[in-house]
Design a protein around this nucleic acid. Sequence first.
DNA 1: CTAGCTGCTGTTTTT
DNA 2: CAGCAGCTAG
Length: 741
Amino acid sequence: MSLPFLEGLNSPQHEAVTLPRQSALVLAGAGSGKTRVLTTRIAWLISTGQASPHSLLAVTFTNKAAREMLTRISGMLPINTRGMWVGTFHGLSHRLLRTHWREAGLPQLFTILDSQDQLSLVKRFLKDLKVDDQKYAPRQVQYFINANKEEGLRPSAVEATDDFRRRLLEFYSAYEDLCRREGVVDFAELLLRSFELLSEDEILRQHYRARFQHVLVDEFQDTNRLQYQWLQLLAGESNAVFAVGDDDQSIYAFRGARSANMQQFERDFGVERVIKLEQNYRSHGNILDAANALIRQNRMRLGKNLWTSEGAGEPLRLYRAPSDTAEATFIVDEIRMLAAEGVALTDIALLYRSNAQSRVLEHALFSASVPYRVYGGLRFFERQEVKHALAYLRLIANPDDDGALLRVINFPARGIGTRTLEQLQGTAQGMGASLWQAACQRGGKGARITASGKGLEGFVELIERLRAATEGLPLPEAIEHVIEMSGLAAYYNAEREAAERMENLAELVNAAAAFVSEQDRGILPAGEAFDAETAAVPETELTAFLNHAALEAGERQAGPGTDCVQLMTVHSAKGLEFHTVFISGLEEGLFPHENSLTEADGLEEERRLMYVALTRARRRLYLSFAQSRMLHGQTRYNMASRFLKEIPPELTRRIGGFAVESPFARPYATVPAGPQGPPFVRETRLVASGLRVGQSVVHPKFGAGVIVGAEGRGDDARVQVSFRNAGVKWLALEYAKLTPA
DNA sequence: CTAGCTGCTGTTTTT
DNA sequence: CAGCAGCTAG
């Protein structure tokens, strides 16, 4: 049998693809054909008869990656991919829970909470409990809950080491109660709940283990503890897990990813040989050399060196700008030049560390009429008006969803204020019921005679009318009705900036139409028919759509048709490649981000992030930084990022004229970074009062440190000091008693 | 009850 | 410079 898709694989790729059924680890560098190996292996397993689509499960982290995988497989094999389980950890977990909601102890029509919804739920009950939000910030409580869930820990399993944590645990428990009462499930819960389902239900576990003979995992370095355990549970002793990953591209440790899972996987799953893919098919030599040199500074690595058979290519271009706006102008000028040379705008990416940085760049692009597209930031399903519309839909699907109710009970305004709401909440508490049930009672009794359409009564009536009017309608039409009848349309039409909001609402209808038709064609993994043997009642179309909205926040909204420059954070650039890449804002404090310096392993993660950024470029790479930058409404003066010095100067070319005291003058090796990294401090800048960046100082309380940054002048002057034992702090020069050491 | 204002705070990355 | 919570005037 000839297998055309095996042609052109290099030898480690070929080995990985055709490995006999066993657990295997593939260490795949950036641009080394990772996805190709994964999908080709699936094609190989199927076409050689070693596996049926039915016995395959492939898991990724993003919906995009899952889709990409399905597309490629269909391109190689003329099979129906429907029998395969391909999706994200969350998507697959969701599917398990949807099928086995009863066994998992969930209501049949449970809905999914995205992180925004989760946060507002947390805020809500913290307020009810009258918690001091100075001491317990909602975001921290949310983080605490998620972090524990991602370790696989329920409240009872978490140790309360002190009063503070004891309190947090109470919140965690209270939060769980609330979720149960409202029939909602957050992201982490999807995983944890499905994990518990499989671990507690022997029969189900055996069933799925018998089914999924082959489990394939993409981006293995991004798995957290719970996901690892989930895989272990699903695979059991006898099934083969084929894991692909790159420890150097682990950039999600901040949310629990453990690249150490790769080493643990080797041991736990009896991996005989680790296959390394080191040949890079993406970038020219100089770019790879730079990336290799940079990542070599990390100590915690499995070890890997990328190479290419292509030439060295152009040197990397370094640019120092006096200000963030100047940096943006420079970038735009270069883009126009590139465009004139025939580089497609779509093939140019502007990368930055944090979303806030896109503003300046957008402004410059806009002024120069260069079309661009920003990824990330506010996603489609997270927009206010869309959330409102979805909240009405959620209420139709599940009236006990208090979060949804609170969101729209008085939006558009219908005379229900804090007072009414308080009473309502009181009633609900008394009844031990949802707000909706309480509202039905109060509104239903018609206690007050109000103009129809107003007050609680009006709201209850409205929702009931909505439910009646949309019943049996095709989803897109139902949504149109909701937008009209709820008053959202009237409200936004009256607003000044209505146009965009109305467009988004119209787009929501389109999204529903697209969802329905894709589901009919079986494209969406979520919409697949359930296992015959479990014969679950399928969720309604509406619930399916709502969960789709939560699970897939609407990654892309603009039509991909137009030729435009791509703006995104480095995180969201992972997995992509471009002819030309600009990495901007390469400044100490920004990239590496100052918050990372106080975290364990923080600097190494930042460096991996930089590594990811560098390896996105195929042909041309620009690295730039600005000496001053507006941040949070203040001008800050930053030094060049230490990462710039970790790139060998012979690979680079400075453009735009540098001063003699160039921060690029010296390779990293001469200034070793300590554990907290003080930082490379070549460039000296007078701050004030004789102190300068780079100077060693002593503080009466914090001890010895080095000045790593400065901002403001005169009385406002502040310096950032990295203390040997006290971390990095900003100090006002006026007050801090700093003495030169 | 609503709307509009003020003052405060929190700012990394996101499935 | 946001976005949000809380307050005040209508």
